[in-house]
Simulated scan of single mutants.
Amino acid sequence: MTNAKFNAWIVYILAFGVFGIINTEMGVIGIMPQIAQKFGISASQAGLLVSLFALAVAIAGPVMPMLLSGINRKRLMLLVIGLFVISNIVSVYAPNFAILLVARIVPAFLHPVFFSVAFVAAANTVSKEKIAHVTAKVFMGVTAGMVIGTPISSFIADTVSLEASLWFFAIVNATTFIAISLFIPSMPVTEKLTYGAQLSVLKKPIVWISIATVIAINSAMYAMYSFFAEYLNAVTQMSGKQISLMLILFGLTGVIGNLLAGKSLSRKAIQTALVYPLALGAIYTLVFLFGSFSTPMIILIAIWGILFTLGLNISQYWITSAAPDAPEFANGLFVAFANLGVTVGTFIGGFFIAGMGTRYAVIAGLLFLALSLALIVLRASMYRPRHVKVGERTAA
């Protein structure tokens, strides 16, 4: 195997590792009804598996990668993935919901560390001008974990068992652990950026406006998506197998959305961001109105999947374009505050479900979309955007 092919193999291993971690985080969305049934809890309580995991990531995001930045990167990745494997196995045999919750929260604090190290490791496999290209490949692991891992876990839970679905998370991460052990060389740290240089970007108001926007967008997305399976079960009256198919449809169109996002953000970034809350708001409104009808919901889910991954890309672009001088730290901020948005959105969505019913999670999503639109308009009116081409974007 040539050196170039070997380095490409390393990048794919890193992308698969990212997929495994995101799959662990978001895969439970597709199996929430089964988890709620097994432990005798409500849908909003089951939502804690997503919201508290994301909260741990949000807390650790700006801190843990910097604290552990001096450790050999291969050893650090093995540490993180190893912890995820153990937590996944504990989840399979969790005797109650509390233990399941703890088993998920503990590894979440190291979630941002793997992301940070994976992007640096990928960058080290190529020349400087190709760094963005390889980090974009690693970022595809995020998209795959969010929009493909969920339907796979749902399908396994529905056709085999809930435990088999949880084993799927463990096997994916164990495969990554083995691959890193065998194929990725030792990566000692030779240079370490100062904390002050990275933290200095937080002095810019545009960064804070962008952070608030990312929180609002992701809150809007996950106020609904965290209860995707629950909504189709309770409102659309779909069976488990039908829900699995809808999650697969959502994932497939999500891949299309990821491809479209690159073109739209490179050509008309601000316009894309401005239109996004309006487009997703229209879909949410139609989901509220026609949620009881299967055929309209199939069409809406297909469009929803496209908009979902577009929202992820907009969020990443919004922060990294606000702090181009510190792309690594900016990516850490994206991971942290996107996950804070997941926490806030899931919590508020669950609040509306508990108080008004599953259908009314839509209201939470619409409120956050209105806030995100206001913040996008604020940034667009106050700052002239720095045009960043797709090939120059730092993936997160």
Rank of each mutant, 00 (worst) to 15 (best):
V18W: 02
N233I: 04
T24S: 11
E129W: 00
M238Q: 08
V50F: 14
I152M: 02
Y276G: 07
L83G: 14
M246N: 07
F228I: 08
Y360N: 14
T125M: 06
A396W: 12
F183E: 06
I319T: 02
V235M: 04
R75W: 15
Y276F: 14
Y276K: 01
G82S: 11
L79K: 02
W318K: 08
L289M: 12
Y12Q: 04
I148F: 00
W208E: 01
T135E: 07
A43R: 01
F84V: 05
G262M: 09
K389S: 15
N23A: 09
I86T: 14
M224Q: 06
A216Q: 00
L373K: 02
V138H: 04
N88H: 14
L340E: 11
V113M: 12
K263I: 09
L182S: 09
M238Y: 03
M64S: 13
L247I: 02
M221F: 06
L300H: 07
L14I: 05
A122I: 05
A279I: 09
L245E: 03
L49D: 10
L367W: 05
R75L: 15
K263W: 14
F119P: 00
G291S: 12
F290Q: 02
S315L: 04
Y231H: 06
I298D: 03
F169L: 07
I29P: 02
N7C: 12
I22G: 12
V160F: 11
L193E: 14
N3C: 03
Q271F: 08
R393M: 15
Q271E: 12
V214A: 12
F19K: 03
T272K: 07
T272W: 05
A132C: 01
L110R: 06
I22C: 11
I99H: 11
V189R: 00
F308R: 00
S42T: 15
S42N: 02
I41A: 12
L110N: 11
E230S: 09
A43K: 05
A354H: 08
A132R: 04
V172P: 04
S127T: 13
I81R: 04
Q34M: 08
I35L: 15
A279Q: 05
L278T: 06
P95T: 13
G357Y: 11
L249V: 06
K389M: 15
L252N: 04
V214E: 03
G305Y: 11
